[in-house]
Simulated assay, not measured.
Amino acid sequence: MTAPRTVLLTGAAGGMGTLMRELLPPYGYRLRLFDRRPVDRRTSENAAGEPDVITADLADRKALREAVRDVDAIIHLAGISLEAPFEKILRANIEGTYHLYEAAREEGVRRVVFASSNHAVGFTPRPADGSAAIPVDTPHRPDTYYGLSKGFGEDLASLYWDLHGIETVSIRIGSCFPRPTSVRMLSIWLSPADCARLLHAALTAPDVGHTVVHGSSANTRLWWDLSTARALGYEPQDDSEPYAAELVAAHGELDPDDPEHAHLGGAFCTDPPQWPH
């Protein structure tokens, strides 16, 4: 029997990390879990026994290097996932991602999956009904300091590919929740099961160099192009449309004249940015 591949999962105590701790091991991965908050081992299945758990901050470069050592790949989810003062975004999302890539370089890890975000291009106008989907080569148009940090992460991944040969798939994640919670989310929802499918494809596709993909399910109301994700072998199985009637009845269809609905980033494009993600 082939030993399972060991994958470092940063941000393992977060919302998406918690979902992936359950959904990734059936693909044959042995997860090593990293977060600055404690992770309950009892809630984490694994392909090969109890997971390794490392409780440390991304600023702890010694702990991070130890976490990276001897892993086959890294899924980088850690960081602040909403808008915050620039100093906090700088430390967690920008410096923290740099520290991760330096640890990967030092330990010879050759594959990273980076959790980017739709907010890296949040000020891109959302497509009108029936118009062409937003292409993956859309230039960075961040809507927040958070979105700015995700654009930085994509560019850092590109640099480490060109300079050090570390391959990365940067996934511009829409909204990964068990179910969509807003009308906007109907267009960018990534079901947890599809998220695991996409991460698996990103970990196993050959010769990715630095590839940017959009991360969502096969939604009827999809706003963006999934072709680069599908080229990795990703085959989304879910669609947000079964939730549409309830959400539209409660909130109405998106009003194109509402500033919150004019851009891909939604309410993140307002001043100050509004939630949820």
Rank of each mutant, 00 (worst) to 15 (best):
residue 165 G to A: 08
residue 79 G to Y: 05
residue 89 I to V: 14
residue 245 A to T: 11
residue 259 P to L: 01
residue 17 G to C: 02
residue 76 H to N: 04
residue 159 L to H: 15
residue 236 P to D: 13
residue 26 P to A: 06
residue 145 Y to H: 15
residue 157 A to C: 12
residue 49 G to N: 00
residue 129 D to R: 15
residue 110 R to M: 00
residue 90 L to Y: 15
residue 152 F to E: 01
residue 255 D to H: 13
residue 136 V to I: 04
residue 102 E to W: 12
residue 166 I to C: 12
residue 249 A to K: 15
residue 176 C to H: 12
residue 200 H to V: 11
residue 19 L to P: 06
residue 2 T to L: 12
residue 52 D to R: 01
residue 39 V to C: 02
residue 243 Y to R: 10
residue 98 Y to V: 13
residue 246 E to Y: 10
residue 87 E to R: 13
residue 254 L to E: 07
residue 256 P to Y: 01
residue 185 M to W: 10
residue 149 S to A: 08
residue 241 E to V: 05
residue 90 L to P: 04
residue 51 P to A: 04
residue 198 L to M: 04
residue 167 E to K: 06
residue 187 S to K: 15
residue 70 D to A: 03
residue 252 G to F: 07
residue 161 W to T: 07
residue 252 G to W: 08
residue 39 V to G: 01
residue 144 T to L: 08
residue 267 A to T: 06
residue 23 L to E: 06
residue 257 D to L: 00
residue 86 F to V: 12
residue 30 R to D: 09
residue 31 L to P: 00
residue 83 E to H: 14
residue 234 Y to W: 03
residue 14 G to R: 02
residue 261 H to W: 10
residue 196 A to I: 12
residue 9 L to E: 03
residue 76 H to G: 01
residue 181 T to C: 14
residue 249 A to W: 12
residue 269 C to V: 00
residue 177 F to K: 14
residue 99 H to E: 09
residue 223 W to F: 07
residue 7 V to E: 06
residue 276 P to E: 00
residue 75 I to V: 14
residue 160 Y to M: 07
residue 176 C to G: 12
residue 225 D to Y: 03
residue 16 M to K: 07
residue 167 E to L: 04
residue 48 A to P: 03
residue 212 V to N: 13
residue 149 S to Q: 04
residue 68 V to H: 11
residue 210 H to L: 09
residue 169 V to R: 08
residue 210 H to Y: 05
residue 147 G to F: 14
residue 127 P to F: 05
residue 93 N to A: 00
residue 186 L to S: 05
residue 202 A to E: 14
residue 128 A to Y: 02
residue 52 D to Q: 05
residue 211 T to K: 06
residue 258 D to M: 11
residue 221 R to I: 09
residue 113 V to P: 00
residue 126 R to K: 14
residue 139 P to E: 08
residue 42 R to Q: 00
residue 185 M to T: 14
residue 133 A to Q: 15
